[in-house]
Simulated assay, not measured.
Amino acid sequence: MSMRILMAGVSGFLGTRLVDRLTSDGHQVVRLVRRPPRTPDERQWKPSAAELDPAVVADADAVVNLAGAGVGDKRWNDEYRKLIRSSRVDSTTTLAITIAGLPAEDRPAVFLNSSAVGWYGNTGDRVVEEDSPAGEGFLADVCRVWEAATRPAEDAGVRVVRLRTGLPLHRAGGMLKPQLLPFKLGVAGRLGSGRQWLPWISMRDWLDAAAFLLDRDDLAGPVNVVGPNPVTNAEFTKELARQLHRPAIIPIPALALKITLGGFAHEALTSARVLPGVLSRAGLTYHHPDLPTALHAALTE
């Protein structure tokens, strides 16, 4: 069934691709933007000031929020940490409170809100699914308040899905893009010990999961949007080097990461052995269930 979907975060790495996917599926996407609208499908809002016209939300069958400053885009300092947190919490709070304030008959049926596997913190070799508690660390703390900000919509009876996204693979962005040049130059290798687990997912499977969750009115709460077979950083490095036909023999020490990445170095070395419990039990079919096929798609499609 075709839906009118209100979406925030439309210009980001995932948002631009999800807009294309939902539009190709026959849905109408209305884009929330912070600047004055330039096209008929745009609506302005100011999440930092909690400004959003309730009528814009009342027109929607579903709301999707992917807004948030990129965690790997800049070196972390205190100011950027505040932006990472506020850009997520302000947008989520504004949408959730606006949804809750509408008459019941005007509320959207579903609110898909971005979150991240950072919720779990450092899990080491321990496997975690959606019922695992929040971990420790900056991103875990951000995820905790980020997810809590959806509560007004949930309390109002709207189906809320919290997308605990892993590491979507695509050559144009995310964790993969900055690695390509060093690998092609033969000056790359595992990060730190290489024993940390990476919860990757192919871009196609991430998009499939988002569309799947919009349609499944029996699914709510946290959902790990990751592939079914996480790998260690050492395994990821080896496979990427194989597909690029380059060596990967220069490990990057933890100290060097801390010097170049600042606060983000801790997160880059975090181990998250996350499984997609909800999606697997719900029957989502993965087009790229293993890393070799996912990386091949990321590098060629």
Rank of each mutant, 00 (worst) to 15 (best):
L244P: 06
G263T: 07
A62H: 01
L169E: 04
G124F: 10
N224H: 15
L112Q: 03
R195H: 13
V160E: 08
R246N: 11
D155G: 00
T93A: 13
S48F: 09
T39C: 00
G101P: 09
R281P: 00
R75E: 05
D208H: 14
R273T: 12
A116Q: 01
Y286K: 08
P37E: 02
P152T: 05
V161D: 03
Q196Y: 10
A294H: 02
M1A: 14
P230M: 12
P54F: 06
W200T: 03
L112N: 01
K46Q: 15
L163I: 12
A297P: 00
R85G: 06
S48G: 11
N233I: 07
R216K: 14
P37F: 05
R164I: 13
L219G: 08
P47W: 12
R34K: 12
Y120M: 07
A256Q: 07
V117G: 02
V29C: 09
R246F: 06
A172D: 15
G173S: 09
E42T: 06
V145H: 05
C143V: 12
R162M: 15
W76V: 06
P178C: 03
G68K: 02
R75F: 05
V63W: 05
A50E: 15
G72M: 15
L22V: 11
H245G: 00
T123K: 10
V89W: 07
I249W: 15
L32C: 03
S87W: 10
L269I: 09
A272G: 06
A58F: 09
Q196R: 09
I5G: 02
V274C: 11
L185F: 14
G157P: 13
N224A: 11
D59T: 10
L275W: 14
Q179R: 13
L255R: 13
G186H: 09
A140R: 01
E129V: 14
P289V: 07
L257Q: 04
P276C: 11
S86R: 15
K82M: 14
L244D: 07
A149E: 03
L95K: 03
S86P: 02
L163R: 07
G124T: 08
D53S: 06
D217P: 01
G189P: 11
A58T: 08
L163A: 14
M7Q: 11
G283E: 09
G263K: 08
T150K: 01
R281H: 13
L83I: 15
Q28L: 08
L185E: 03
T285P: 00
L213T: 10
T270S: 15
M1G: 13
L279A: 12
P222C: 11
E136P: 00
F13Q: 10
A297N: 04
A294Y: 01
L169T: 06
S115M: 09
D61C: 01
V160G: 10
